[in-house]
Design a binder for these strands. Structure first.
Lengths: 285, 285
DNA sequence: CGTGATATTGACAGGTCTCAAGACAAGTGG
DNA sequence: CCACTTGTCTTGAGACCTGTCAATATCACG
């Protein structure tokens, strides 16, 4: 054995194995609905109705996502029914939406709720690569080929769809407009991956956390999901830790600092940016 | 000011501003040539000859890269001459190939030598996102739109080309085979970006460095640029530091450990993996 | 021989991790 | 209604990994 190398940090023992529902899951759903009140409530409970009609027209992120293009597609090209593995499925919080080995044929798209895409090592270390909101693909790369080793976990209760990659791919290759749109998503995704590497490699803990908050606020803002400086914020400190390469304990200390100094305020599952200027200074943004 | 936050680490003072040639640049070129002896030497000095003929046919990474497709393209689609901004250019080591604001119109491709693609902050902190070898694009995303804030720096003397994005893009959109090939590059790139985030966020220094060495060895192996367990290794410890999110001082200590324990051996600009099993244990690979 | 870049080494400091204990909220079963 | 569990958050003490600073050596180069 390599006993002269320094041992790695112990993996967090907060496993994913528990199937019990988390506290606050209902609150999360409620809050999420409050922000997406244009979604037809009928679609939420009767998940398996209407295979033919794409529910994406009710998706708040309609304009950003692939669903829009699928929606506009004349059914003559490919019958829509074959594009959709099943109608939207709903899973409770903390459930895995995609297992690391589950990428062979289908591409999931988040319809509603928050999810996290991450890599999990055998020893339990985990790195969250991105948070997914309504209309988000896990990665645009997943449209073209199976990506391995990625897990997708629901943070709030999540409604999602799975598309058959083969069909989606054919659709994209035959539609220059769609391809153009995908390539823009691709560039944006690449940009975000680069920034993540920069954050993890070269920034201190308060900087990383402040940037994560600002990034999420911006993302929510684009979807009209900010009310003033307040946003629905279902992330556990463990999620923040796994996204920023820190430990939950340290995240707690940094967030306490931020709140003690009146920069942000977190209560329940909502976060308010009280002093955006200061937050940007901390974030070096 | 935010005097209650912990200050960030001082940026490394090893700036890029110096224009003097580094020691060992010629050695690097020599060595590189030794590994790429199938490249016609005439192309190396007479860089501006033969605009019409694509020199990529001599590129050792021919099969991996976009150049192959461009090469096969019938000239009737787009005259090759218009695809190429200028014939291959050669820059000495430590020169910037692409400035952060220089991505408006052209896409660089490395023909020969080693380069590093990185993000550099105003305070000097730098994160290397990838090392580029012959045939490598900086990022496949750059084919579709300008990416901002990325710098590309020559590590050895580098020969490269710039393609006009508009033309390349048209080429790709009209050739399904090429698009398929690009999408495979994309997936691979995404995979590597994910692994980088995992490395930076969740691995210890020896793990990161060992993985970097193994990754480079694998990359060189695919190009037939390994001789046994020995490879040309022009990276300065500063490059390793900037790629792994560490400081040059700490990289030196970890590498010293690795060499003291007979895992690897570095002399001059070449690196030998003496004990691959042990290196993989350290790398957790 | 002075200069600049690089690499090595040691002492020290500091950011983050580990471990532990406790508080709190929510759900469960008695 | 009350124990009990589970998950989350907070706080403190101490350890450790890595960064900072400094001195020195080497090498290439002009």
């Amino acid at each position: 054995m390599a006993d002269w190398i320094t041992p790695g940090p112990k993996a967090s023992k907060d496993g994913l194995e528990s199937e019990s529902e988390q506290a606050g899951a209902d609150l999360a759903a409620e809050h999420s609905d409050a922000h997406n009140d244009e979604a037809a409530p009928a679609l939420l409970d009767g998940a398996d109705s209407e295979i033919g009609a794409c529910a994406c027209s009710a998706c708040p992120a309609h304009a950003f996502s692939l669903c829009a293009a699928v929606d506009k597609m004349p059914a003559t090209v490919t019958p829509l029914a074959t594009l959709i593995e099943s109608s939207a499925q709903t899973v409770p919080a903390r459930r895995l939406i995609c297992h690391p080995k589950d990428w062979s044929e289908f591409v999931p798209i988040i319809c509603q709720g928050w999810a996290a895409s991450s890599i999990i090592l055998a020893d339990g270390r985990r790195q969250i690569l991105s948070f997914l909101l309504s209309g988000d693909l896990v990665s645009s790369a997943s449209l073209f080929g199976s990506i391995s080793g990625r897990s997708v976990e629901a943070i709030t209760p999540v409604r999602y769809r799975k598309f058959r990659r083969k069909d989606i791919k054919a659709l994209i290759f035959n539609d220059p407009d769609l391809l153009e749109k995908i390539s823009r998503i691709w560039i944006e995704e690449r940009e975000q991956a680069d920034q993540l590497a920069l954050d993890l490699g070269r920034r201190m803990a308060p900087e990383r956390i402040a940037r994560l908050i600002l990034y999420i606020a911006e993302k929510l803002g684009k979807r009209g999901m900010m009310t003033g400086n307040t946003m629905f914020f279902p992330l556990r400190q463990r999620h923040i830790a796994d996204a920023t390469g820190l430990t939950p304990v340290h995240v707690s200390k940094v967030l306490s600092d931020l709140q003690r100094n009146g920069v942000v305020q977190i209560s329940g599952r909502s976060l308010t940016i009280n002093n955006e200027t200061e937050l940007r200074i901390v974030a070096n943004w």
